[in-house]
Structures are given as C-alpha cells and as structure tokens.
C-alpha cells in the first residue's frame, strides 16, 4: 500500500490509498479487454466489408462501447479500481489500433477479396 497525500484548495489534506500491484493488474485487465474488442471489432468490420474512413470510425465506436460497458460495470465511478477517468477512457486505445488493423485486413481479405 502506498499513501498519496494531496493538499486540497481549502487547506485540508486528503489521503488516498493505492496498492500499486492491484492498480497494475487492473491496467492489464483493461488493456486485455481492449485487445479483445479490437480483435472482435476488426473481424466484424472486415466481414461487414467496411472500408476506408468508415472502418476507422468504427474502431472508435467499438472503443466507446467498451468504455461505456466498463463504466456501467463499475457503477459509473472509477474510484476503487482505477486512478482516474483518463485511465479508463484513454489508456491503451492507440496501442490496440495495430491489432484492429491486422484483423480487419485479415477478415476483409478472407471474405471480400479472394
């Protein structure tokens, strides 16, 4: 456990308890979820035959959907599991783009090109 103390505007000191290991594990779970969504979404886009900008926009739609589902599961608050909303919404979005592109291309080629 690590204590992070931060001073608030009115002078009171607020203390938060973090467990770095758990925080890390939650981060890993988050990225894994994003990867799964990227794979499933890539295949969906490919099979539907989306091309160009439509596929790119769909990626962000899938990610938005994932974030919304996650937020619903967390009960619309990040508190006990993540450090901030930023982490829940943004972390790992761009890391899984390459995975999305790979599976998009794979599915698109398998269904539509050959």
């Amino acid at each position: 456990m690590r204590i992070v103390a931060s001073k608030k505007g009115d002078g009171t000191i607020e203390k938060e308890l973090f467990s770095p290991e758990s925080l890390k594990q939650n981060g890993v779970a988050l990225t894994n979820g994003r990867t799964i969504i990227a794979i499933a979404g890539g295949m969906t886009s490919g099979i539907l035959g989306l091309t160009g900008l439509k596929g790119g926009l769909c990626y962000f739609m899938y990610m938005l959907l994932f974030t919304a589902a996650l937020a619903l599961k967390l009960g619309w608050k990040y508190q006990p599991y993540f450090a901030s909303w930023n982490q829940v919404c943004v972390d790992g979005i761009f890391a899984s783009v390459t995975t999305y592109i790979l599976f998009w291309t794979l599915a698109y080629n398998s269904v539509h090109v050959f």
Partner: peptide
C-alpha cells in the same frame, strides 16, 4: 510487417503476461 506489429496485443492476451 503488419503481422509483426499487430500480433503484439494478441500474444499478450494468449500468454497472459507482458
């Protein structure tokens, strides 16, 4: 090359660690 970059996420998923 597309595979090289895209496979990273999938491998992480399969192997369960970084």
């Amino acid at each position: 090359f597309l595979n090289l970059f895209g496979m990273q996420g999938l491998l992480q998923l399969i192997l369960g660690e970084k």
